[in-house]
Nucleic acid binder design. Structure first.
Length: 662
RNA sequence: GCCUCCCUAGCUCAGUGGUAGAGCGACGCACUUGUAAUGCGUAGGUCGUCAGUUCAAUCCUGACGGGGGGCUCCA
């Protein structure tokens, strides 16, 4: 028997030539796949002399991907066993799980998912081995003649980067056979691999939902049925993941919006159009007031513009050419008709504004501008209307009418780097004030095929953005070619309390609009120059930011944002008058208070206040009254008794002023 | 826009081809209580809208409106 000299996890070993990684790592159940000479391979791969083998744990990022990809295969096998005549699409791993696209006779329903899941459990229990087999394009086409989508993929073998590469992206065209107990293939799928050694290595999985999805991601293609699933190295990790989802559902802003009486979407108004109730109104106003104050401090000037405009403005800006399908259709005014219905006099078209920048440009252009005025920073809480496709609406975070905290900065080329730098610092600090602390930045650069402007302009602006970003000491992710056609941008991504990422602020350089609006300033040498224009929004939309904060805080807003900052709860009715006096003093001190004078027992009042997530419960009974004091109960259940009234007021005021969470 | 599921009281949800029920909430009465639900009672619904099938529709079918989950999109 021949011996091979190989390196395993950095240690030189001699093994006999029959040995494969699965034998070498047999002791360590965590190892489910390996790299051989740097390439990710099955544990069943044949070894050669000199190979460098490294075991990959199921819990590592690569291991998780393989686990999830293999689980997708098991699901596909189960689907075809339960629903014969189902054609296969693709089935890659994704964050936290996997999906597989199918073309079934009938779309799946929730009962089907249960059937599929139990078929999967059977396959997992059988411990089918995943066996790699190299094939040729010709043979594969014959073998997969019943799988039209797979055949389409074979032709795309060289395709890189898209999800289909999981199937056919490797150097060789390969098929994975699942071997039954007798060692014979029970199911096969065109796939690049690698896979777990066997289906028995899938510790914990669950099917989540089915959904429609366009074949290969294009709406021009037929729609397939996608099933999403999740898979984890242990049942505990699966449970933790499911708990996270349950937690996310509990803090869903749409649910909290109803529970806390913040806002609603009356059907009568229309899809994607919200009304804010008094309590939501308080939160929103607190958000706006603080933002306004900070912008004032930062040298912004406040402007206002109308909600509708004649078409010409959006012709100048170009929006009617590019985005008219995203705009509400025009109102036609003053049109006159002949008796036969033909047009006697053409009307004027007015549009709802989908953005504010053209208006701000008109303000800039309303008179001659001097270099001494720059940078000119125009700010507006501008309400815009966009005809979003019905399927994309999502509560208050993706609506058809919303208000941007929109500003446009006009500056000289020389001022741009400094302006971007201070702007980014301002943005991040403001977001921190609202309680978001975990950020990364994304720099979107030019797509040469779809962009306007000079190379030198792009380079200059992109470098200025990059420099500003680098200074923040935050992770910077490059979004190559992801810029809008008119200029590069930085976006701030923020992580919320349960680790979800939200795209927040954007800072965008625009080479297009100053030109289209012929914006100019008079430079110190009397020449006319074109200013640089920077678009920026911190919240993006106030409504969306409201929704994000609601989910981030799970409705338990910090005192400065809370609709009711303190609620008075008498131990019994006889203390209501005393507490009313305390509440009046608090109100006079600028605190938003409520007094619970209902018939409920004190315990019930505490419960209600707790469910309303009110930061301070101010409780008073005999002991407090005789001491001229109150007792606090906080949202976390802690309490503090016998606080003199003045101290109680000071404590609340301090929390509000310092915008701390309690 | 596309696929799919859903719409019953203010909220959360049961239920049936013969015009409906619970819990919470609201309102009333009694009770007067020190940190997450006191008891009793009352009111509240043309079962999203409009058509169709049927002797009969909240239930079946269709269209429309609104919503959920995805896909595509997101200036």
């Amino acid at each position: 028997m021949a011996l091979l000299s190989i390196t395993v996890d950095g240690v030189a070993l001699s093994v006999d030539s029959e040995q494969r990684p699965t034998h070498i790592f047999a002791e360590n159940k965590e190892i489910v796949v390996c790299t051989i000479n740097g390439e990710l391979k099955d544990l069943w791969t044949d070894l050669k002399d000199g190979d460098v083998v490294t075991g990959i744990s199921i819990s590592s990022p690569q291991g998780l991907s393989v686990l999830r990809h293999s689980t997708a295969h098991v699901m596909a096998q189960a689907v075809q066993s339960v629903f014969a005549d189902t054609k296969l699409g693709i089935g890659p791993p994704i964050t936290d799980g996997f999906y597989y696209d199918f073309d079934p006779q009938k779309p799946f329903n929730p009962d089907d998912l249960e059937k599929i899941e139990s078929a999967m459990r059977k396959i997992v229990k059988e411990g089918q081995r995943f066996k790699r087999r190299v094939t040729t394009e010709k043979d594969a086409r014959i073998e997969l003649s019943a799988e039209p989508y797979k055949c389409e993929l074979i032709g795309l073998k060289s395709g890189e980067g898209d999800e289909a590469s999981v199937e056919v992206g490797g150097a060789e065209l390969t098929i994975y056979d699942n071997l039954g107990r007798d060692g014979k293939p029970v199911w096969s799928d065109l796939c690049r691999g690698p896979h777990l050694p066997s289906t028995k290595h899938i510790p914990a999985f669950k099917l989540m939902r089915s959904a429609g999805a366009y074949w290969r991601g294009s709406e021009k293609n037929p729609m397939l049925q996608r099933i999403y699933g999740t898979a984890w190295p242990s049942q505990d990790e699966l449970n933790a993941y499911l708990e996270l989802l349950a937690e996310a559902e509990k803090r869903d802003h749409r649910r909290l919006g109803t529970e806390l009486d913040l806002f609603s979407f009356p059907e009568e108004i229309g899809s994607g159009l919200a009304v804010f109730h008094p309590k939501g109104g308080i939160v929103r106003r607190a958000m706006e007031d603080y933002s306004r104050k900070r912008h004032e401090d930062e040298g912004y000037e406040f402007v206002y513009s109308p909600h509708i405009t004649k078409a010409a403005l959006f012709e100048t800006s170009g929006h009617l050419d590019w985005y008219s399908e995203g705009m509400y259709p025009p109102m036609i005014l003053d049109e006159e008709h002949h008796a036969d219905g033909t047009i006697k006099r053409a009307g004027q078209q007015y549009y709802m504004k989908p953005m504010n920048c053209p208006f701000h440009n008109l303000i800039y252009r309303s008179r001659q501008r001097s270099y001494r005025e720059l940078p000119l920073r125009l700010f507006e809480f501008g309400t815009v209307y966009r005809y979003e496709k019905s399927g994309v609406l999502h509560g208050i975070t993706r609506a058809r009418g919303f208000t941007q905290d929109d500003a446009h900065i006009y500056c000289t080329k020389e001022q741009m780097p400094g302006e971007l730098d201070s702007l980014l610092t301002f943005v991040l600090n403001l977001l921190r004030d609202y309680g978001l602390n975990d950020f990364y930045l994304e720099l979107s650069t030019r797509n040469p095929e779809k962009s306007v402007g000079e190379d030198s302009e792009w380079v200059e602006a992109t470098e200025a953005l990059r420099l500003a970003a680098t200074k923040q000491n935050l992770e910077l992710v490059l979004d190559e070619g992801g810029a809008a056609f008119y200029g590069p941008k930085i976006s701030v991504q923020a992580k919320d309390a349960i680790g979800r990422t939200w795209q927040m602020s954007t800072i965008q350089v625009d080479f297009q609009l100053p030109q289209r609006f012929e914006l100019e300033y008079v430079a110190n040498d009397s020449t006319r120059q074109r200013p640089v224009m920077i678009h920026r929004a911190l919240f993006g939309s106030i409504e969306r930011f409201f929704g994000v904060l609601t989910e981030h805080y799970s409705g338990a807003f910090p005192p400065w944002l809370a609709p009711v900052q303190a609620i008075g709860i008498p131990v019994a009715d006889s203390f209501t008058d005393y507490l009313d006096g305390v509440m009046k003093a608090m109100r006079a001190a600028g605190i938003r208070v409520d007094l619970d004078t209902s018939d409920d027992r004190m315990q019930k009042k505490v419960r209600n206040a707790q469910l309303q997530k009110i930061p301070f419960m101010v409780i008073a009974g005999e002991e407090d009254q005789s001491a001229g004091a109150v007792s606090f109960r906080y949202r976390n259940g802690e309490q503090k008794n016998g606080i003199p009234i003045a101290e109680a007021i000071a404590e609340i005021q301090k929390a509000v002023q310092e915008r701390i969470q309690v």
